[in-house]
Design a binder for these strands. Structure first.
Length: 284
DNA sequence: CACCATGTTCCTTG
DNA sequence: CCAAGGAACATGGT
């Protein structure tokens, strides 16, 4: 569920559910996801602490907690990697196969599950400090983008994945944004015209904002029947409506007709990752 | 068996 | 210093 819109919707969903809950116990089933924290130190800090707030920065979840023993507030940083999920479930339900870290909250528990274990749940905030501006904030201006892109010869699709340029764009929305802006993914960042950068800036904001708005309209009953909610997974459970894919115009649609002009959507590999684009709407 | 996968970091090579 | 390419992390789907 990994890019900015999905994290934003998840944060809005979890914030009221976690607020004021106290961590009674911590179970670490995959110590690697805590790195560089150690399980012992992690537990010492978190047991007894209470959730007071939750925010998003890029693809990171920022949990604010308060430890009543010391009165200290601190931040717990979450990242879902490629396959991470976070949800509450009743404490008497069986733990999922790939539960990496579990917080006992009394009648319920907070689960961080991750099939590939690429994500993190850690007290280390270094990753957050390295992020560029939030694309939906006032600080992210077309002028900022122009200045930043002028200095780079990288292909624009690859550049959009650079979290120090702008925080939260991943492989899926990078293709979607360039399609919306009508820009070829192969264009060198510094060769984009001023007008193209403006279109790119606008597309970043509209595509991400639309994805958040669409995601917010669906219920996220993680512990219940909608555990396989199609919104957040590109691959979905059999028999589940594919809401997620329906709103993607080019991603994973190689060979299908472009929704604008009908030309065949092409797939290409950049930085060992797939890019999808319309060769007619997005000319080099 | 082959290849693909929403992310990030590190290393090598040019 | 930069850009590109590959590997690593680890598991599952097709």
């Amino acid at each position: 569920m990994p890019e900015l819109p999905e994290i934003e919707v998840l944060v809005r969903h979890l914030a009221p559910l976690l607020k004021n809950k106290t961590i009674r116990a911590v179970v670490v089933r995959r110590a690697n996801v805590l790195l560089p924290d150690s399980p012992a130190g992690f537990k010492r800090t978190l047991i007894g602490a209470r959730f007071v707030g939750l925010a998003r920065r890029g693809k990171f979840l920022l949990f604010t907690l308060r430890q009543p023993r010391t009165g200290r507030r601190f931040t717990l940083v979450g990242h879902l990697g490629m396959t991470g999920r976070m949800y509450l479930q009743p404490a008497d339900q069986p733990l999922p196969k790939h539960a990496a870290v579990v917080f006992a909250l009394g009648k319920s528990r907070f689960v961080y599950e991750d099939t590939r274990y690429f994500g993190r749940l850690t007290l280390d905030t270094d990753g957050v400090a390295r992020l560029g501006p939030e694309p939906l904030s006032a600080a992210f201006t077309a002028d900022y983008l122009r200045c930043a892109l002028r200095r780079s010869r990288q292909q624009i699709k690859v550049k959009l994945l650079d979290q120090t340029l702008v925080a939260g764009v991943g492989n899926l929305y990078a293709s979607e944004v360039l399609f919306r802006a009508g820009i070829s993914p192969k264009t060198s960042a510094c060769r984009l015209t001023s007008r193209q950068v403006s279109r790119l800036w606008r597309a970043l904001r509209t595509v991400l904002a639309e994805a958040i708005a669409l995601g917010s309209t669906l219920p996220l009953d993680w512990a219940g029947r909608n555990e396989w909610d199609g919104l957040f997974y590109f691959g979905r459970a059999p028999g589940t409506p594919d809401h997620y894919r329906e709103r993607l115009r080019v991603y994973d649609r190689g060979g299908e007709p472009c929704p604008n002009c009908g030309a065949r959507i092409k797939r290409l590999v950049q930085a060992s990752r797939s890019t999808f684009y319309c060769p007619r709407c997005q000319r080099a």
